[in-house]
């Protein structure tokens, strides 16, 4: 079972690089924000998989919740900032 989680995590990790490409080279700020938010959700799942691998889910759930919260608030703040500036 642990092998299964490791391979799943590796697959998600390779998908993170696709999002990272969009975040680095993506045209415009909106693409970058969406890419970073997607990276955040993938990191959350990878953290939970790490918890399963190391048999300490209750610890990694705390970390992943913090990550999700800060990702949410950061995305909202960036969106509001762009709404005010009106230049993308």
């Amino acid at each position: 079972m642990s092998n299964f989680f490791i391979y799943l995590g590796m697959g998600l990790f390779s998908l993170v690089f696709l999002c990272l490409y969009r975040g680095v080279f993506g045209p415009g700020v909106l693409n970058r924000i969406a890419a970073i938010s997607a990276i955040g959700t993938k990191t959350l799942v990878i953290l939970l998989l790490m918890g399963f691998i190391y048999d300490r889910v209750e610890m990694f759930i705390d970390i992943s919740m913090v990550y999700a919260l800060l990702n949410f608030i950061g995305t909202i703040t960036a969106a509001k900032y762009l709404e005010i500036k009106r230049e993308v």
């Binding site: 209750e58 610890m59 705390d62 913090v66 919260l69 800060l70 703040t77 509001k80």
Partner: peptide, 23 residues
Amino acid sequence: HSPGGGFQGGVILGASFILYLIT
């Protein structure tokens, strides 16, 4: 007992107030 502590909790608490401020 678990990861986290004063600094991390304070950051989350401050983030909640920031969320209230911007919404």
